[in-house]
Nucleic acid binder design. Sequence first.
DNA 1: TTGTTGTCATCAATCGATTGCAATATACCC
DNA 2: GGGTATATTGCAATCGATTGATGACAACAA
Lengths: 342, 342
Amino acid sequence: MANKVTLKQIAQEVGLSPSSVSLVLNNRPCRISEENRKLIKEVAARNHYVPNQIARSLVMRESRTLGLIVPNIESRFFASLAGSLEKRCREDGYALFITSSGGSADDDLELLRQLVTRGVDGVFLVVGDEFSDDRALREEVSHLPIPAVMVDRAIEGLECDKVMFDHEMGGYMATRYLIEQGHRRIACLVNARRSNTGRKRLAGYERALREVGLPIDARLEFESEYYIPSAYESSEAVLATDATAVFASSDNIALGLLKRLHEMGKSIPGDISVVSYDNSAADVLFEPALTAIEQDPGVLAEHAFGCMSKRLAGRGGRRAEEVVLEPALIVKDSVLELTKHN
Amino acid sequence: MANKVTLKQIAQEVGLSPSSVSLVLNNRPCRISEENRKLIKEVAARNHYVPNQIARSLVMRESRTLGLIVPNIESRFFASLAGSLEKRCREDGYALFITSSGGSADDDLELLRQLVTRGVDGVFLVVGDEFSDDRALREEVSHLPIPAVMVDRAIEGLECDKVMFDHEMGGYMATRYLIEQGHRRIACLVNARRSNTGRKRLAGYERALREVGLPIDARLEFESEYYIPSAYESSEAVLATDATAVFASSDNIALGLLKRLHEMGKSIPGDISVVSYDNSAADVLFEPALTAIEQDPGVLAEHAFGCMSKRLAGRGGRRAEEVVLEPALIVKDSVLELTKHN
DNA sequence: TTGTTGTCATCAATCGATTGCAATATACCC
DNA sequence: GGGTATATTGCAATCGATTGATGACAACAA
């Protein structure tokens, strides 16, 4: 294991002052003879000199590093978001530190502190469980000494840049499509109890029904957490109804549902039609391919970085910016068109 | 956006010296009156004081931060590895900075520098493309001023702690199992050209065949990159053979194969048996569930952290440690038992 | 000789913490 | 009151960089 080499050591070896070495290695405009320039560079290279960014950030007061906090890096959607964001950051010369909280507000808070304290210039925050006690977290976020951008999910009522998809619209689009295909009895499987996004998707679902004068039937609205087993549990009840279609409000929920369907020997879309959400498992072999509301994590990343960029450049407005992105309906093969029915 | 509060400012407000404030806030054994202690803590809290870890690491020469470089955070296996590793690090009070390279040795090198320069105490390295020009990378790794642990994949001939699964054994186990189930014509689909792991899995496949005296038939060995489309392409040829079973040496390869199988109307395991690798898509609904060689990322994380921990404590031996983990065969429903055949 | 200009390089303060040692204040003892 | 012990707190150096101000020296003009 090699030792860390410092500016001073290089200076010593070259026989010049640390200042000169710094100047040269950073290519600053300064008057150092060509000869010494070469010498310095050569010695630095030979010694594998890497400037200590820690020391540098201390005086420069910026680290060209950004932080990202996601609730769970093992989720496909967040992993993809992290990947896109990292690429985007790198394009602008920023390093991105990805951290994964356990999902609780306490974890988020802890990681947020870790990042701030380690001198990131800004932080992207995808909050976890939206219904745990987040007072400390909101307090912290509102006192942050660096810009923060909330991505995909927001803490309600917190003045902070936000970039997210329109979940209400997603729910609406999915349901609307099912209606257009002739479905009248449409069930939905959502996480409304513990998730704001779920709540919004449900609202969109109901709006679509209302819009065409269909009744909103509480017996067709089912609750599920964003985990496959939870959805699997809830799905049995769904299949006991007379619904001809289901809006599954997340990909995991869809997977749980599909598993149950398969076990019961029901086919899609023959026995029942399905619209899913988050086409993040698109590359996996589904049979049939699922029609879904898609949220491109790359787009999310792009806009989130845009917001951050503005703030970092001091161009952000006084008030928080809120970007709402429209999801897309990707039609595949899991919905049956009912020509004459009901 | 709040301002950053420094020790000095707190000291000023309390009317004591920065040293005293530092001592108290770090709970160091020192003789500061109970009264002032309280006062300091109160003022610090009121001002949302967070110590500047940057400044602290500079003098302490440790940051209690570790770094991880993976080739692609969007891969399920790496995401899972990252998640496990992060949890493990946090348990010991370390923060983990996850970074995702593009997969090339150049990217790895760049990120490695980024991490070192930002003062991580150690780095976990999952190298990307094993066949790009990695001279600069090996050079850098061997001169690293901090401990490094290579995970899952290694640069051959580099003296460095390594933790990985036994890929040869994995290939062997998969093939051996197929043989035991009565298969004699077994194809394999591997990434031997661009991946050491693939090469090893192929070696294991061949060993299993040799062991029972089956011929090694080059016409049954097919090449595929670790991407679904690539496997999809290669699969057509596989199905043109008389093989009754296929060893698909990664989950993505299995997916590409499955897609093709489905399109050709072939059923598993009726028409052909499949053993997959990396049971990382286990929670997704496959039909039928795939028998596979499983590598638990959590185990990998645990051992990797163990190595790192030793090094950080200065307990690591002079020589590099090499941990080889055994994968597991998880039997599900994608292999048909041939009782009398051939 | 003195002054001017230009070239090359260094000084010293700074960023925000930590910490060994020195310093001061107070109490206690004879 | 002088001396010693003890309780509190502050000084100043340090970590490794950056950077505006400044110095040293040579060449050349007047």
